[in-house]
Write a protein that binds this DNA or RNA. Structure first.
Lengths: 206, 206
DNA sequence: CAGAAAATTACAATGGGTGTAAAAAAGCTG
DNA sequence: CAGCTTTTTTACACCCATTGTAATTTTCTG
């Protein structure tokens, strides 16, 4: 009765993965808009309705592992070394998450991370959803931070996190959009974060 | 032939405004999701298809004046006092835009800005679209900045803008979400920007 | 006023998403 | 294993956003 991995659960996981894989492959081959949910379901050998039993919308199938990353980030914050400054901590967290993305480590199946990155960049709907996720994560991160650092209230934490992620996100997007590869984009992003860390005040007069 | 304000143009403007007004009113009364495009069109006395001739999607009708604000911001950057630091300039721009939002000054008709703010906060789709607009604006702003300040390249500018707007946006959202009124949210947002300005590095150790 | 150009319309179709109730699969109990 | 319960899947029917097309109306111009 304990630690059971019932047949049901295994089947559900398999179906879920089949849907994610089929979707990613089809999106990659024919494009996001051109692929219909019906096709994804067919490729995964389930009914269309079943797709929506697993994912609330067509987009969501692409963000299946985002929450995993978020959980990791939250844990890093909760378990930080006492004495580590907020700046250092955030830098560490962002680095780690970027590393995960880059290395595909979390990937459900094959190397879908690059495909997803490309798709998210290309499709406005997906980009919007991604940004929404980032925003949601900011609030969670801020809460975790203000729990970890007693001296900082949640709203301030939100501001700090927003600045960091804002810099990181904007830089990544801009960099990718102008044709840089993922590595370069991440490098640029780190530079932007470092800049934010040291303050934007003095930044540039004529 | 010159400077004509043709009947056609006047009519188009009137139709456009009728659509925006009808949409805002209906969204306010019955909620965004519950209102159908058909109803909006009917209220504005045009066909459904005509709605889509004016706005590419249901959401867009709510962001009708976003580009106006953006144009103003871009102009402020282009026409800055030589010698003004980037930090000061951005602070000034953000203040001004927030002021516009707060004062409803740009509003097409009645005082729809608050309604819109509430709707955007409440509806995930709208929030996503708003963030997308912010992201797009960041890239434009960055371009304007790197044209105005020769010493700063576009990617760096994107990072700086991203940090500022990221802090501002996250704070506003978090503040509103916890029930603050618009004034308080804006105040909090300004504080966050100031913090980002002075650098997040030293920020908080145990 | 006639005819060109632009805008609006009706109409039909596609596809995402939801609700419902029936059928199929899996788990449980004796 | 037989029968019963719960979960999952399915078929089906529906709503609505969005798009394309072609006909119709309105505005403009000479």
């Amino acid at each position: 009765m304990v630690g059971e991995v019932t047949l049901r659960e295994r089947k559900k996981l398999r179906t879920r993965r089949a849907l994610v894989d089929a979707a990613t492959r089809l999106f990659d081959e024919k494009g996001y808009v051109e692929t219909t949910v019906a096709e994804i379901a067919a490729a995964a050998e389930v009914s269309t309705k079943t797709f929506f039993n697993y994912f609330p919308s067509k987009e969501e199938v692409l963000f299946a592992d985002a929450e995993v990353r978020m959980r990791i980030a939250l844990r890093m914050i909760a378990e930080r070394e006492p004495g580590e400054s907020l700046g250092d901590l955030l830098l560490r967290v962002i680095d780690h998450v970027l590393g995960l993305i880059r290395s595909d480590a979390l990937d459900v199946g094959m190397s879908t991370a690059k495909v997803r990155m490309r798709l998210v960049m290309a499709e406005p709907v997906l980009q919007a959803r991604a940004q929404q996720l980032v925003m949601a994560s900011q609030i969670d991160l801020a809460r975790a931070i203000s729990r970890s650092y007693r001296t900082i209230d949640e709203l301030t934490a939100v501001g700090v996190v927003g600045a960091f992620l804002g810099a990181a996100q904007a830089t990544v997007v801009a960099s990718l959009r102008r044709g840089d590869n993922v590595e370069d984009a991440i490098t640029a992003s780190r530079a932007a974060i470092a800049a934010a860390l040291h303050g934007l005040a003095g930044a540039v007069t004529d």
